[in-house]
C-alpha cells in the first residue's frame, strides 16, 4: 500500500477544507482500504470521516421520507425499525449484501461509492479503461461471465455491485453532496454514470465533493406493503449478485396503481426504466403483465461476452420479484434475505 497522510476532520467543512487533489475520503474502509491494498486506489491523503457526528444520523422525515447520513453503518440502517418498516426492500437489499462483519463497518455513503468487482479493474496489471483511461478493456474478451448486459460500451463492461443502490434507484433516492461549491442534490439515476467512452468518470461527484446523505422521498414509503429485493447468486450467502431485482408495487382493489422496478448487477449503474413501471400501472398483478414489464426493463440488453444467460436470468428474476412483492412484504425479515430460499423451512 502506498504511504499516505492521514487526517481526521471533525466536521464536513473541515473535511472539505482538507481535500487536495489525490486525496480520498474514508468511510468504513471496507472497499477503499481493500482497493488500496491491491494497488487499485493510491490516495496521497486519507480524510477519515469517521468522527463527523453530523453525518451519522437516520432521520425519518415528516411526511414519510427519510434522510440517512452518509456515515450511518449499513447494518444500523437495515435494522432501524422505523426505516425498515417504511423501506423494507432497502433493508432487505442491505442484508443481502456482504457479511455481518462488513455491514457493521461499511457506510451508506461508501456503499453508494462502491467500485466495480470486474476482475480486470481489480488487477493493476491488466488493461482497464476505468482504472487507467485509454489502456483498453481486458474484460471484453476475457473473464466476463458476470459483467454487463445493459448500458455497456466497447470501452467498459463493468457492473455496479451494490445491492443497496438497486432499491434506492427504484425508489428515486436523492444523493446529497457537498463540495467546495456548496451543497447540491443529485438524483440517484444521475449519480452513477454509464461508461460510454469515458468509463473513468464513474459518478457525478466533482473533485472534492462528498456524499453527506441519502434522502428517500415521502412517496417512496407508499410502497412499503409490497416491496421485495431478490438476489440470484452462486452461493446461498456472501456472494455478489448474478442479477438482482428491487420490485415494489402499490396495489388497490386487485390492481397495480404504481410500480417501482430496478435491476442490479447488469450494468454500471442500477438499471431502472420508468416505461416498464408505467406499463404495470393499472394492470392486474399477473405473470403475463410482469413478463411484459420485464421485457420492457430489459429492452436493448445484449451480451458483452459470455454472459448472455444473464439476460434471461434477469427477465425471470424480474417476474419473480414482482410476484414476491405482489404477495406482500413479509412481516419479519426472511432468514435468508433476498434469497430464493428465503421462505424455505430449515433442516438441522
Amino acid at each position: 500500500m502506498k504511504r499516505f497522510d492521514y487526517v481526521r476532520p471533525l466536521s464536513v467543512a473541515d473535511a472539505l477544507a482538507a481535500y487536495t487533489p489525490g486525496a480520498a475520503y474514508l468511510g468504513g474502509g471496507t472497499n477503499l482500504l481493500d482497493l488500496m491494498k491491491i494497488g487499485v486506489m493510491q490516495p496521497d491523503t486519507l480524510i477519515d470521516l469517521g468522527r463527523i457526528a453530523e453525518l451519522d444520523a437516520i432521520e425519518m422525515l415528516p411526511g414519510g421520507g427519510a434522510r440517512i447520513g452518509a456515515l450511518v453503518k449499513n447494518s444500523d440502517l437495515a435494522h432501524d425499525r422505523a426505516f425498515a418498516a417504511a423501506f423494507p426492500m432497502v433493508a432487505e437489499a442491505i442484508l443481502a449484501g456482504a457479511s455481518g462483519q462488513l455491514r457493521n463497518a461499511a457506510t451508506i455513503g461508501g456503499n453508494l461509492m462502491q467500485k466495480t468487482r470486474c476482475t480486470y479493474f481489480q488487477d493493476p496489471h491488466s488493461p482497464c479503461n476505468r482504472r487507467e483511461p485509454g489502456s483498453g478493456c481486458a474484460a471484453r474478451e476475457g473473464d466476463n461471465a458476470n459483467l454487463a448486459v445493459l448500458g455497456w460500451s466497447d470501452a467498459c463492461i463493468a457492473t455496479n455491485p451494490s445491492d443497496m443502490c438497486v432499491p434506492l434507484a427504484a425508489l428515486g433516492a436523492i444523493v446529497e453532496v457537498q463540495g467546495p461549491g456548496g451543497r447540491r442534490d443529485i438524483q440517484i439515476a444521475s449519480f452513477h454514470f454509464l461508461p460510454g467512452d469515458q468509463p473513468e468518470n464513474e459518478t457525478a461527484l466533482q473533485p472534492g465533493e462528498l456524499v453527506i446523505a441519502i434522502r428517500l422521498p415521502a412517496e417512496a414509503a407508499a410502497f412499503a406493503k409490497n416491496a421485495r429485493y431478490l438476489k440470484v447468486r452462486e452461493r446461498t450467502s456472501f456472494a455478489f449478485a448474478l442479477v438482482s431485482v428491487a420490485a415494489a408495487l402499490q396495489i388497490e382493489g386487485g390492481r397495480i396503481t404504481a410500480a417501482r422496478l430496478a435491476l442490479g448487477a447488469v450494468a454500471a449503474k442500477p438499471w431502472r426504466v420508468t416505461a416498464a413501471e408505467e406499463l404495470l400501472a393499472g394492470q392486474s398483478p399477473t405473470q403475463e403483465v410482469f413478463a411484459r414489464a420485464a421485457d420492457a426493463l430489459l429492452e436493448g440488453a445484449k451480451p458483452s461476452g459470455e454472459n448472455g444467460y444473464k439476460i434471461e436470468l434477469a427477465r425471470r428474476a424480474v417476474v419473480r420479484a414482482l410476484q414476491m412483492s405482489a404477495a406482500g412484504t413479509p412481516k419479519r425479515m426472511p432468514a435468508l434475505p433476498a434469497s430464493s430460499f428465503a421462505e424455505e423451512a430449515s433442516h438441522v
Binding site: 452462486e234 452461493r235 450467502s237 456472501f238
Partner: peptide, 9 residues
C-alpha cells in the same frame, strides 16, 4: 467460491 455456512444444512 467455497461453501459458506448457509450452503450447508
Amino acid at each position: 467460491h467455497i461453501p459458506v455456512n448457509a450452503d450447508v444444512q
